Amino acid sequence: MAGAQRVFSGIQPSGVPHLGNYIGAIRNWVQLQKTCGNNVMYSIVDLHALTVHQAPLLLKRNIKNMTVCLLACGIDPKQSIVFQQSQVPEHCELMWLLSCQTPNGWLNKMTQWKSKGATDNKSFVNIGLYAYPILMAADILLYKATHIPVGADQLQHLELTCDIAHTFNSRYGVEFFPKPQPLLSEGKNQRIMSLRNPLQKMSKSDNQEMARIDITDTPDQVHNKIRKAVTDCTSAVTFEPEERPGVSNLVSMYSALSGKTTDEVVEDFTGKETVELKDGLTQVIISYLKPIQEKIIELEEDEGHIEQILTDGARRARERASVTIRGAKELLGIN
């Protein structure tokens, strides 16, 4: 990336991230700190989490746990701004200003909304779920972010953000908001699938704990989950995502954590069976997660330190956010 880049990304406080979160997003966030200087912001987007019912005490604990895990994975508050979304009220203020620029037809087209409307009990689908893409746009535009690490399933939301920014700029005759560009954070072998259904992404919302590896899982838990991971009736190790998604998912995980290509992993296991791949992958995961887990234990012992990081992060975020809000309100004639 050339020039002055401003990176923003957010993660919901689902508690402890799973291996898919780490490989597909968090590890890339750590690398971005090294290339973008002090222009990197990572938010724990707790307001987005409220689109479904949250037990208050559990949500509070999950916010802390997610912060601890991000830090343990390598997010450095000296290099990045790490903050809790709800502690920066300008997010909601800008969301309202942008809502008044956004046709509801745009929201009706959002794929995730249409899928939710089709599967959920419509009497319980709330306005927050419908409008949260505007909050996502506000999250990004509030800091005039230019580059957004996203997975392929979030590209539609980023396109909406660009449409909203363009509408605002055109209506008021200024280039106030930049057009944010995607940084696809799920490249080759970074899209980690469910251990129980390898046609679906590994997800925290999956009710089957056996479907994912949490980064705090013990060696015994890792061993048990990988041993029972769905593969197929062929014992050979190959990388064929379309034909053999289960085995290919295990090869992808091995590749992502070992630094080897998928071809190299397959070559290493030529003449061996899937059970041996599972045993090898188990050891790779356990070894990889060990220093992260040790750091988590260390950070959990100093709760005040975690709170201070979030407080400092919110202060730094508000310094930037307040400038954008003042400018937007001035253009709107309400400042």
Rank of each mutant, 00 (worst) to 15 (best):
P149L: 04
D268S: 14
Q293L: 09
T51A: 03
S185W: 10
D214N: 10
L57M: 10
L135G: 03
V16R: 06
T231A: 12
L250P: 09
G3L: 06
L160G: 08
E298L: 01
T274H: 05
Q54F: 03
V125D: 00
D46W: 08
T167F: 09
R320G: 14
F269W: 11
F8D: 02
L331E: 10
I127W: 10
E319K: 15
H157I: 03
T119S: 15
D263V: 06
A145P: 04
I309L: 10
L59C: 07
A165N: 15
G333R: 10
C69P: 01
A138E: 02
T234C: 14
E159M: 12
G259W: 08
L183M: 04
T324K: 11
P13M: 11
Y288A: 13
M202T: 11
S123N: 11
S80N: 08
A321K: 05
M136I: 05
L141P: 00
C73V: 04
Q156H: 07
N108L: 15
T35W: 11
P56W: 14
E267N: 09
R315H: 14
P178S: 07
T102K: 06
D263A: 07
P219S: 13
E175V: 01
Y42N: 03
L184E: 02
S255I: 14
I296A: 13
A165P: 11
D120W: 10
L310V: 13
Q85P: 03
I134G: 00
L299I: 07
V45N: 03
M95S: 00
E330K: 14
G271P: 09
A236T: 15
L199N: 15
T111G: 13
V266E: 09
N62A: 02
K64C: 00
E93C: 04
P180Q: 04
G128S: 15
D220A: 15
S185Y: 04
C162Y: 00
W29L: 12
L257V: 13
C69H: 02
I306M: 08
V30R: 12
R326C: 02
F239P: 03
T146K: 02
T282K: 14
K278A: 07
A317M: 06
G10T: 00
H53C: 07
V222R: 00
K260E: 07
P178F: 08
D217F: 03
E240D: 14
I63M: 08
V323L: 13
R326F: 06
S255G: 10
P241T: 14
A49K: 10
R326N: 13
H147S: 06
N121P: 03
C233I: 10
L332F: 05
S255K: 05
D163Q: 11
P291H: 06
M41L: 08
W106S: 09
A211G: 15
D214P: 01
L155V: 04
L141N: 01
H18R: 02
D302C: 03
T102V: 10
D232F: 05
R6W: 00
D120N: 09
Y42R: 09
L32D: 01
N169R: 06
R196W: 00
Q79F: 04
G128H: 12
Y288S: 10
R227W: 08
Q283G: 02
T119Y: 02
S115G: 06
L155S: 10
A165T: 04
C100R: 03
S258Q: 05
V174E: 08
R315P: 00
P241W: 11
